[in-house]
Protein backbone atom coordinates (compact mmCIF):
# COMPACT_ATOMS: atom_id res chain seq x y z
CA UNK A 1 0.00 0.00 0.00
CA UNK A 2 1.64 3.10 -1.23
CA UNK A 3 1.49 5.67 -3.97
CA UNK A 4 3.49 4.67 -7.02
CA UNK A 5 4.46 7.72 -9.02
CA UNK A 6 7.25 8.99 -11.30
CA UNK A 7 10.55 10.09 -9.78
CA UNK A 8 10.83 13.85 -10.27
CA UNK A 9 13.89 16.09 -10.17
CA UNK A 10 12.50 17.85 -7.09
CA UNK A 11 12.39 14.53 -5.25
CA UNK A 12 16.05 15.19 -4.55
CA UNK A 13 14.79 17.60 -1.89
CA UNK A 14 12.73 14.89 -0.29
CA UNK A 15 14.78 11.72 -0.32
CA UNK A 16 16.73 12.21 2.91
CA UNK A 17 14.90 9.60 4.96
CA UNK A 18 15.74 7.08 2.23
CA UNK A 19 19.25 8.25 1.42
CA UNK A 20 20.64 8.76 4.90
CA UNK A 21 20.57 5.01 5.28
CA UNK A 22 24.19 3.82 5.21
CA UNK A 23 23.73 1.56 2.21
CA UNK A 24 22.20 4.19 -0.01
CA UNK A 25 24.50 6.55 -1.84
CA UNK A 26 23.65 10.16 -2.62
CA UNK A 27 25.10 11.08 -6.00
CA UNK A 28 25.61 14.44 -7.68
CA UNK A 29 22.76 16.27 -9.35
CA UNK A 30 23.91 15.13 -12.77
CA UNK A 31 23.54 11.46 -11.86
CA UNK A 32 19.81 11.74 -11.22
CA UNK A 33 19.23 14.17 -14.06
CA UNK A 34 21.05 11.98 -16.56
CA UNK A 35 18.61 9.15 -15.80
CA UNK A 36 15.59 11.40 -15.83
CA UNK A 37 16.61 13.06 -19.08
CA UNK A 38 16.77 9.72 -20.86
CA UNK A 39 14.68 7.08 -19.11
CA UNK A 40 12.10 8.90 -16.99
CA UNK A 41 9.70 5.99 -17.35
CA UNK A 42 12.22 3.66 -15.68
CA UNK A 43 12.48 5.85 -12.58
CA UNK A 44 9.75 5.82 -9.97
CA UNK A 45 8.99 6.51 -6.34
CA UNK A 46 6.90 4.77 -3.69
CA UNK A 47 5.32 7.29 -1.42
CA UNK A 48 3.39 6.85 1.83
CA UNK A 49 -0.11 8.34 2.04
CA UNK A 50 1.42 10.91 4.40
CA UNK A 51 3.61 12.15 1.54
CA UNK A 52 6.84 10.73 2.92
CA UNK A 53 9.08 9.02 0.43
CA UNK A 54 9.36 5.27 1.08
CA UNK A 55 11.77 4.23 -1.64
CA UNK A 56 12.65 4.58 -5.29
CA UNK A 57 14.06 2.78 -8.30
CA UNK A 58 16.24 4.22 -11.05
CA UNK A 59 16.83 2.28 -14.22
CA UNK A 60 17.97 2.51 -17.79
CA UNK A 61 17.78 0.68 -21.10
CA UNK A 62 21.06 -0.25 -22.77
CA UNK A 63 22.99 -2.77 -24.85
CA UNK A 64 22.81 -3.69 -28.51
CA UNK A 65 21.37 -6.62 -30.42
CA UNK A 66 20.42 -9.51 -28.18
CA UNK A 67 22.01 -7.66 -25.27
CA UNK A 68 19.39 -4.89 -25.39
CA UNK A 69 17.97 -4.85 -21.88
CA UNK A 70 16.64 -2.95 -18.89
CA UNK A 71 19.09 -2.29 -16.07
CA UNK A 72 18.35 -1.54 -12.44
CA UNK A 73 20.84 1.09 -11.31
CA UNK A 74 19.46 1.86 -7.88
CA UNK A 75 16.73 0.32 -5.80
CA UNK A 76 16.28 1.47 -2.26
CA UNK A 77 13.68 1.46 0.50
CA UNK A 78 13.89 3.50 3.72
CA UNK A 79 14.51 1.38 6.82
CA UNK A 80 11.08 1.95 8.32
CA UNK A 81 9.30 0.75 5.19
CA UNK A 82 11.09 -2.52 4.68
CA UNK A 83 9.28 -5.87 4.70
CA UNK A 84 6.32 -4.40 2.83
CA UNK A 85 7.16 -5.79 -0.65
CA UNK A 86 7.86 -2.31 -1.96
CA UNK A 87 10.97 -3.44 -3.80
CA UNK A 88 9.00 -6.13 -5.57
CA UNK A 89 6.39 -3.63 -6.78
CA UNK A 90 9.03 -1.28 -8.14
CA UNK A 91 10.80 -4.17 -9.86
CA UNK A 92 7.47 -5.23 -11.37
CA UNK A 93 7.08 -1.80 -12.88
CA UNK A 94 10.61 -1.67 -14.21
CA UNK A 95 10.26 -5.12 -15.76
CA UNK A 96 6.91 -4.20 -17.25
CA UNK A 97 8.26 -1.03 -18.88
CA UNK A 98 11.46 -2.74 -20.04
CA UNK A 99 9.32 -5.40 -21.66
CA UNK A 100 6.40 -3.39 -23.08
CA UNK A 101 8.01 -0.09 -23.98
CA UNK A 102 11.67 -0.82 -24.56
CA UNK A 103 11.16 -4.40 -25.81
CA UNK A 104 14.29 -5.53 -24.00
CA UNK A 105 15.35 -9.17 -23.83
CA UNK A 106 16.05 -9.18 -20.10
CA UNK A 107 16.50 -7.05 -17.01
CA UNK A 108 19.74 -7.13 -15.10
CA UNK A 109 21.24 -5.73 -11.91
CA UNK A 110 24.31 -5.94 -9.73
CA UNK A 111 24.30 -6.90 -6.06
CA UNK A 112 26.96 -7.03 -3.41
CA UNK A 113 27.90 -10.61 -2.59
CA UNK A 114 27.49 -9.91 1.09
CA UNK A 115 23.96 -8.71 0.59
CA UNK A 116 22.35 -12.10 1.08
CA UNK A 117 18.96 -10.59 1.77
CA UNK A 118 18.96 -8.86 -1.60
CA UNK A 119 20.26 -11.88 -3.52
CA UNK A 120 17.60 -14.01 -1.90
CA UNK A 121 14.90 -11.52 -2.81
CA UNK A 122 15.98 -11.25 -6.46
CA UNK A 123 16.08 -15.02 -6.75
CA UNK A 124 12.51 -15.16 -5.54
CA UNK A 125 11.63 -12.60 -8.20
CA UNK A 126 13.03 -14.88 -10.89
CA UNK A 127 16.56 -13.55 -11.23
CA UNK A 128 19.60 -15.77 -11.49
CA UNK A 129 23.31 -15.10 -11.43
CA UNK A 130 24.65 -14.61 -14.93
CA UNK A 131 28.26 -13.92 -13.95
CA UNK A 132 30.24 -12.47 -11.12
CA UNK A 133 32.13 -9.26 -11.58
CA UNK A 134 35.46 -8.81 -9.88
CA UNK A 135 35.84 -5.56 -7.94
CA UNK A 136 32.53 -4.22 -9.17
CA UNK A 137 31.82 -2.49 -5.91
CA UNK A 138 35.43 -1.50 -5.36
CA UNK A 139 36.20 -0.39 -1.86
CA UNK A 140 32.52 -0.01 -1.09
CA UNK A 141 32.31 -3.73 -0.70
CA UNK A 142 34.07 -3.89 2.62
CA UNK A 143 31.72 -5.92 4.78
CA UNK A 144 31.75 -6.58 8.46
CA UNK A 145 35.10 -7.18 10.01
CA UNK A 146 37.20 -5.70 7.24
CA UNK A 147 37.57 -6.82 3.68
CA UNK A 148 35.65 -9.89 2.82
CA UNK A 149 36.99 -11.82 -0.17
CA UNK A 150 33.49 -12.67 -1.30
CA UNK A 151 32.51 -9.02 -1.30
CA UNK A 152 34.72 -8.33 -4.24
CA UNK A 153 32.62 -10.54 -6.50
CA UNK A 154 29.34 -8.79 -7.17
CA UNK A 155 26.93 -11.03 -9.00
CA UNK A 156 25.33 -9.73 -12.19
CA UNK A 157 21.80 -11.10 -11.99
CA UNK A 158 19.37 -11.43 -14.89
CA UNK A 159 15.79 -12.26 -15.60
CA UNK A 160 14.56 -12.90 -19.15
CA UNK A 161 11.58 -10.96 -20.48
CA UNK A 162 8.85 -12.02 -22.90
CA UNK A 163 11.07 -11.25 -25.87
CA UNK A 164 13.43 -14.00 -24.78
CA UNK A 165 11.13 -17.03 -24.49
CA UNK A 166 14.08 -19.35 -25.06
CA UNK A 167 15.80 -17.92 -21.97
CA UNK A 168 18.99 -17.28 -23.95
CA UNK A 169 19.95 -14.35 -21.75
CA UNK A 170 20.49 -16.50 -18.65
CA UNK A 171 22.59 -19.56 -17.85
CA UNK A 172 22.57 -22.09 -15.05
CA UNK A 173 26.28 -21.95 -14.24
CA UNK A 174 26.51 -18.16 -13.92
CA UNK A 175 27.99 -18.29 -10.43
CA UNK A 176 31.12 -19.94 -11.83
CA UNK A 177 31.74 -17.33 -14.46
CA UNK A 178 33.94 -14.55 -13.23
CA UNK A 179 34.76 -11.51 -15.32
CA UNK A 180 36.74 -8.38 -14.58
CA UNK A 181 34.99 -5.06 -14.08
CA UNK A 182 36.67 -3.77 -17.24
CA UNK A 183 34.80 -6.30 -19.38
CA UNK A 184 31.43 -5.11 -18.20
CA UNK A 185 29.90 -2.18 -20.04
Amino acid sequence: MSVLRPFRATDMFKFNNVNLDVWTETYGISFYLSYLSRWPDLCCVQQAPSGRMMGYILGKAEGSGAEWHGHVTALTVAPEYRRLSLARKMMDLLEFVSDEIYRGFFVDLYVRCANYVAIDMYEKLGYSVYRRVREYYGSLGVGKGGRDEEDAFGPDMRKPLSRDPGRRSVRPNGRDIIVSAHDVP
Binding site: P6, T10, P40
Partner: peptide, 19 residues
Protein backbone atom coordinates in the same frame (compact mmCIF):
# COMPACT_ATOMS: atom_id res chain seq x y z
CA UNK B 1 20.38 18.39 -18.64
CA UNK B 2 17.60 20.68 -19.72
CA UNK B 3 19.37 20.77 -23.07
CA UNK B 4 19.72 16.97 -23.02
CA UNK B 5 16.05 16.59 -22.29
CA UNK B 6 15.36 18.71 -25.39
CA UNK B 7 17.63 16.59 -27.55
CA UNK B 8 16.07 13.40 -26.23
CA UNK B 9 12.56 14.90 -26.48
CA UNK B 10 11.76 14.20 -22.84
CA UNK B 11 9.36 17.11 -22.57
CA UNK B 12 7.79 15.87 -19.36
CA UNK B 13 11.10 16.44 -17.60
CA UNK B 14 11.94 19.93 -18.83
CA UNK B 15 9.62 21.94 -16.57
CA UNK B 16 10.65 19.69 -13.66
CA UNK B 17 14.35 20.32 -14.24
CA UNK B 18 13.75 24.04 -14.49
CA UNK B 19 11.77 24.04 -11.25
Amino acid sequence: FVVRAFTGEKYSQIPEFIT
